[in-house]
């Protein structure tokens, strides 16, 4: 009885190919349905529209004196703003580019040479490097030093020593006046 019924489905009978095609189509439809159902769930985990919405931060540079550094928060991350001294600018420009792990000219990383703006997240594993506060260890190049695994950045925030693969990232920004920048 059950055997007979079973045989009817898979045994060699006329019309079997049409039946198998039907089963195949059924299974295919089922597969498409499952995939189509899963996607909205997964996509709901992607950043929502409010997270993606353009967010900008304006920074007033007047209080940042020559040689001083400022940290601001932008899109949840710290941004380092460095009012560089002429010595720091020269030190950054004098570096032989081919010596760098992530070759980049200092002039390509700034809009005005006395203002360095970088995202303060180490490109190794994401710690926040030291160097923003007075008394912080700035590392051998006078830039920044990441205490987590010893990455060393120079006065253009380029990686010089340690495990980080890339220079500190430069965020999108513009000078809305001589003394204000707009991040993002």
């Amino acid at each position: 009885m059950a055997d007979l019924a079973h045989q009817n489905v898979t045994g060699a009978h006329p019309g079997e190919t049409r039946r198998d095609f039907l089963i195949l189509t059924t299974a295919a439809i089922g597969g498409v349905a499952v995939a189509a159902t899963i996607w909205p769930f997964i996509d709901s985990l992607n950043p929502a529209r409010d997270t993606l919405a353009e967010s900008t931060t304006e920074v007033d540079l007047v209080p940042v004196q020559l040689g001083q550094r400022l940290t601001v928060k932008w899109r949840g991350k710290p941004v380092f703003i460095d009012h560089r001294t002429p010595e720091e600018i020269k030190a950054a420009a004098d570096v032989n580019i081919s010596d760098l792990r992530d070759p980049q000219k200092d002039s390509d990383r700034v809009k005005k040479p006395e203002w360095l703006v970088v995202i303060g997240v180490c490109t190794h594993l994401g710690c926040i490097p030291l160097g923003q506060r007075a008394g912080d260890d700035r590392g051998p190049y006078g830039g920044w030093f990441c205490p987590c695994h010893g990455s060393v950045y120079d006065t253009s925030a380029r990686i010089r020593q340690g495990p980080a693969p890339l220079n500190l990232a430069v965020p999108p920004y513009d000078f809305t006046s001589d003394t204000t920048i707009k991040l993002g």
């Binding site: 996509d43 709901s44 929502a48 529209r49 409010d50 997270t51």
Partner: peptide, 9 residues
């Protein structure tokens, strides 16, 4: 409004 397919879920 903002979560992708949030209205659907």
């Amino acid at each position: 409004r903002d979560v992708n397919y949030g209205w659907l879920v």
